[in-house]
């Protein structure tokens, strides 16, 4: 539809970016300047905070750890969700509705409910402070989400394609590799994007299940003198770096973002 350019989205995005701008300027200031008075630009821009973070493995491994468990989580969630979404999309099996309801429910679960049991289970398995523990814990919200999104995309692929592949003698793995997965490639990208997002931002479980070796940056930030009255400039720099992986992903995904997801046939 042709429409006149409205100022509303520009004003809104401007308002969204102000806090981000504030965070970035703070990261180039000194603590003296931050505590002193309100300045819109750093009086004497300094990279000292960034030097601290990139000079100390205890800091920069926080980012590496977070990226490792998020990548693991996305890989697990998407891998198990692909066949499950196919079953929801193509089969009218016994328990279809019940299972869908169960998935919906777990996606809505509060991390706080699962916190203590997770700590218990993963300590019994001797997996506390490992990346896989966090990756598995985050599955309770990401596996259902991945199934929903992928099911929508698979249901948009005509069933006749399955049938003709069957007649042509494709095996199931070959059918997925050669036919189904290329058809839903944008859907897989969208799914990975949303799984990355929800795992990357989560704090409560990621922090509780790790101590040193797998501690994410968010846990290090709370420890470094407390997020409340700690080193403002240093925490601002850590925050800015903490936003960079997300921004990189958004730019990579920009063509797919506007595609969104409908959770197609299920919803």
């Amino acid at each position: 539809m042709r429409q006149r350019l409205s100022p509303a989205p520009f004003l809104y995005v401007f308002a969204l970016m102000m806090p981000v701008y504030w965070l970035v300027t703070m990261s180039f200031k000194t603590n003296g300047e931050i505590a002193g008075q309100l300045t819109l630009f750093p009086a004497a821009p300094t990279l000292a905070q960034y030097a601290v973070i990139f000079g100390d493995p205890a800091w920069y491994f926080g980012y590496v750890n977070a990226l490792i468990y998020v990548a693991l989580n996305v890989a697990i969630a998407v891998t198990v969700a692909i066949p499950a979404a196919y079953a929801f999309s193509r089969h009218d099996f016994f328990g279809h509705r019940t299972l869908f309801f169960g998935l919906l429910m777990f996606r809505m679960m509060a991390p706080a409910i699962l916190l203590v049991p997770f700590v218990q289970v993963f300590s019994d398995l001797d997996l506390i402070d490992t990346h896989i523990a966090v990756a598995l814990a985050h599955c309770f919200f990401n596996v259902p989400l991945a199934i929903w999104i992928l099911e929508g995309f698979m249901s948009a692929v005509p069933r006749q394609i399955d049938e003709s592949a069957l007649i042509d003698g494709y095996s199931v793995p070959r059918f997925f590799r050669r036919i189904m997965l290329p058809q839903i490639a944008p859907g897989i990208a969208i799914t990975a994007f949303y799984c990355f997002m929800f795992s990357w931002i989560e704090f409560l479980l990621a922090n509780a299940l790790t101590t040193i070796d797998a501690k994410p940056i968010a846990g290090i930030m709370t420890r470094a003198g407390g997020v409340l009255f700690g080193d403002f400039a240093l925490l601002a720099a850590a925050s800015v770096i903490g936003m960079l992986p997300g921004i990189a992903l958004i730019v990579l995904m920009k063509r797919h973002l506007a595609r969104g997801f409908s959770m197609g046939r299920i919803l």
Binding site: I201, I217, K254, L257
Partner: peptide, 18 residues
């Protein structure tokens, strides 16, 4: 759209601190 999506990927701890 790219700018709109940026807050979504801010870790919760960063949102709180900000």
């Amino acid at each position: 759209v790219v700018l709109l999506a940026i807050p979504l990927l801010a870790p919760l701890i960063v949102v709180g601190y900000l």
